[in-house]
């Protein structure tokens, strides 16, 4: 895995950009790889479709834009419709099955992983941690970024006093992902 392109899509306010930030920070600061994050900017990040693009690479990242993501993580139906056409053949699709309910027209050989992260978040008492659950899930499924680094990055990127909740959320997603990967 020399050069991986990741796209995260959802609604503004779901923590899409923060998810990209946490991934990028984990990859660059803690995993000592190169990471470049760009984001859709403007009215979109204040509601409506929103996306973050992350490149993680062993080498320096020159061109900063994601063109053909190998991994697509979506937390809304709209983002699913908008971004799946650019997913590479054989790419990974990760989605929240509570918010994306119609999965079709996928590129060939897409590896699909879904998680009821909104429901899990509600069970934890705060819907706001949906994206952190997704990040745990992502970590288990893709192994682009190490578990330890991701955990550190989550903890250093969230408001003080919310560590316990976020760690629980991250762990929940991670364990659910491990079960999926191991086919339990």
């Amino acid at each position: 895995m020399k050069h991986i392109e990741i796209k995260i899509g959802g609604f503004g306010g779901q923590g899409i950009v923060l998810s990209g930030f946490i991934m990028g920070k984990a990859a660059s600061i803690y995993d000592k790889k190169n990471a470049t994050l760009t984001q859709s900017y403007g009215p979109e990040s204040r509601g409506g479709a929103c996306s973050a693009q992350l490149i993680v690479s062993e080498e320096e990242v020159d061109y900063p834009e994601v063109q053909k993501p190998e991994i697509l993580m979506v937390i809304s139906q709209e983002a699913y419709e908008k971004f799946t056409p650019c997913l590479v053949k054989g790419g990974i699709l990760i989605y929240d099955e509570d918010l994306v309910n119609s999965v079709n027209n996928l590129p060939k050989e897409t590896r699909i992983y879904s998680i009821p992260s909104t429901r899990f978040a509600e069970e934890l008492g705060r819907k706001i941690v949906t994206n952190i659950i997704m990040l745990g899930f992502f970590t288990a499924i893709t192994s682009v970024i190490s578990y330890e680094s991701m955990k550190k990055s989550v903890l250093s990127s969230i408001p003080a006093g919310t560590e316990e909740l976020n760690l629980k959320a991250f762990q929940k997603g991670y364990e659910f992902g491990l079960e999926k990967v191991n086919g339990v």
Binding site: G20, F21, G24, S28, I29, N34, A35, T36, L37, T38, Q39, Y41, V61, P64
Partner: peptide, 10 residues
């Protein structure tokens, strides 16, 4: 420029 201003890297 906007790309460099809004890009996040190490």
């Amino acid at each position: 420029d906007e790309i460099v201003g809004h890009m996040t890297e190490k």
